[in-house]
Design a protein around this nucleic acid. Structure first.
Lengths: 124, 124, 124, 124
DNA sequence: GTGGTCTAGACCACA
DNA sequence: GTGGTCTAGACCACA
């Protein structure tokens, strides 16, 4: 269901959070569906349950999931979340583009990249 | 010469490295010019000399500067560095754009952002 | 007869207890009337009978209901209970108001709120 | 600096968060001042450093404090926080007052309580 | 079974 | 010294 990159500098719990954010925002885990349990995920990934717990606590705090005591965690409604996430992404993009301009990356290179990547979307 | 953002998540030595990379790549510190000494910079920024030392070691390792014993550090030739830096920036851009596409950021938003930011360049 | 909020942080048994307290104190379930059976309520709410059982045990312990063997549970006399409940509510209110004052909530805001809410009572 | 109520049902980390929120919002810990270190606080309260760490992580996430790597945690600016906190308190008050009205607590009792508590403010 | 809290203790980057 | 991450393992309330 999820893969961990042990080479990455990002901490395990952060990777887990981001993976589930994607699964939820893309609809792979639709609102109302049950999350894997903390323990089962810990076993599957060979990661300490505490680390999974931390990731789930963050997901809950961000509004992605909600726990039902004794039953498990479930995916929440997420209309606002996807909008927030996109705005956030555009902010990062802005910062990176400014930096690109600053160090002399030609506009044409950025445009080409943009076209190439979004062209693939059509292809899909 | 350099300003530090203490609220930033980035460690001090990393901020210092990036600031000098920019100063060197933009030509503010041209090849052959002398770097400020570790001690003077430490004093000026009220930062532990060890931290400055670490930043300089990284800059040397990346080929931005080179030390001359008993004289200090000097800015190296950097034709390749700027190219590397730009390629690296494009790689990051590619990853970010892929992510943007994945979470449904419209192509138009990216294009608009790109145009806006590079337009400012002309204005400058 | 009763609705459960699955998104609430409060455990199911606690929600059930509070709902019945209200039904009893407001007279919707008058003294002497029969409580729904544990089994029927469990079915109706799709909740584990153990959970209902726990709620009923608490209601009995607090004096809201009493069991008759082989017949079921019945609503008790509750003159004292309503008084207790009100006193308890005032204690909570006192703590909250102290906190409000402490963090600088203006007295006027509290008064306005009080007037607004109790005005609705008259309207009803 | 802080006291823990071991009788309370509230988890330790939550108590710590709330205590520091108060210290910060009341100005006892002004913006820019240094927080006690995770380890020192753990020793002082005889609580596991992990628990303190969890509390600090929450305070950071809520914007009360920010960490400087290798130096410690510091109190952030908090103009918006106090406003948020007050609004939150009024929301709780509204819910409690509705409940009070619902179970028949007389308006006069609430008014008297309000007057009594806010009168003490003047006395102080 | 479920999620949540806490301790003990190790190890890391950073200053 | 500082904060941050992670593991191992215990214990709790809840369903």
């Amino acid at each position: 269901m999820i893969t961990i990159d042990y080479q990455s500098r990002a901490p395990l719990y952060e990777q887990i959070v981001e993976k589930f954010q994607m699964l939820i925002l893309t609809g792979a885990l639709p609102p109302g569906s049950q999350m894997p349990s903390v323990r089962s995920l810990a076993l599957e990934l060979s990661i300490n349950p505490n680390t999974i717990q931390k990731a789930f606590a963050l997901l809950e705090q961000q509004g992605y999931i909600f726990p039902i005591k004794g039953k498990g965690s479930f995916v929440a409604e997420n209309d606002r979340l996807i909008i927030q996430k996109r705005e956030n992404c555009l902010l990062k993009l802005e910062a990176l583009l400014r930096h690109a301009r600053e160090i002399g990356v030609p506009k044409a290179d950025c445009t080409a990249l943009l076209t190439r990547i979004y062209h693939q979307e059509v292809a899909l």
